[in-house]
């Protein structure tokens, strides 16, 4: 009545249509986590088959594996397993080399958040840019606050250097792992923090020299002798300075 005989030749041939996935599906589902040395202490790092997806300092999860896993689960809603091998190039990137070449998995973010982090990734080591610069870089010049929020939610700090984005008034501003760590990271990268803060006291956030106006952390500005402080690019332009084509100062 049903023609349902499993030893029938057609049925046997249908049984041969079973297929094994080309690769273990666990690889596409699970995040892997491990601990690695960062620039200022140990880090928890999670990654998927696409790239690094989550970085936390050991302090931020109270040196507790369970707390790290809990946060990962809440954010990603994916299973997680422990591994001993860090992604290729990550250790080097955290020591300051080739951070932009390490793949990241930002699928959990909105397109806006991804744009913010992609632009932030372009800020060179030893330099800073204000939130407004990032906002302009992604074509959303008015979304300065939203940029700040997106950076505060950066799931892969250090690898995407959100610590290099500072307030538009020259103060260093907040950081996902605290303002104090932000300053230590910038100093560890040999950013001229003291100079930036001294300028900020006079509300100077740009410097001009030799006909060019820059952010104070720009390599060009740092080589300048006796630069002149400015409070806006417009003021510098009126004084005859042209915006730097390396650090592209905005506002």
């Amino acid at each position: 009545m049903t023609g349902d005989y499993l030893d029938d030749p057609l049925s046997i041939e249908l049984g041969n249509l079973v297929a094994t996935p080309p690769r273990d599906l666990a690889g596409a589902l699970f995040g892997d986590w491990t601990r690695v040395d960062g620039p200022l202490g140990e880090l928890y790092v999670a990654f998927t088959d696409l790239g690094v997806s989550y970085i936390r300092t050991v302090e931020s999860v109270e040196d507790d594996d369970k707390q790290f896993e809990q946060r990962y689960h809440d954010l990603f809603q994916r299973p997680l397993r422990r591994t001993s091998a860090a992604p290729v190039g990550l250790q080097k990137a955290l020591r300051g080399q080739g951070a932009r070449d390490v793949p990241v998995d930002l699928r959990v973010l909105t397109p806006f958040e991804r744009d913010v982090l992609t632009a932030t990734r372009e800020i060179p080591t030893g330099q800073t840019r204000p939130y407004a610069w990032v906002a302009r870089a992604i074509g959303r010049p008015k979304a300065v606050r939203a940029v700040g929020t997106a950076l505060g939610n950066n799931p892969v700090p250090l690898l995407i250097p959100c610590h290099r984005v500072t307030r538009s008034d020259g103060q260093l501003g907040q950081y996902v792992f605290g303002a104090e760590l932000k300053e230590r990271l910038l100093r560890a990268e040999d950013t001229n923090v003291d100079e930036v803060l001294t300028l900020a006291k006079s509300r100077f956030v740009y410097v001009g020299y030799d006909g060019v106006v820059c952010y104070p952390t720009c390599t060009r500005a740092r080589n300048a002798k006796d630069p002149k402080g400015f409070r806006s690019v417009a003021a510098a332009e009126i004084a005859g300075y042209t915006p730097c084509d390396i650090c592209t100062p905005a506002g």
């Binding site: 249509l17 079973v18 297929a19 666990a26 589902l29 299973p79």
Partner: peptide, 23 residues
Amino acid sequence: DLDTGFAELVRAYQRVVYSVALR
């Protein structure tokens, strides 16, 4: 332990799930 158990679930059923997805 959900994640450990889930790894077993994937191991046990990925072939049947993939086969049905494919066919």
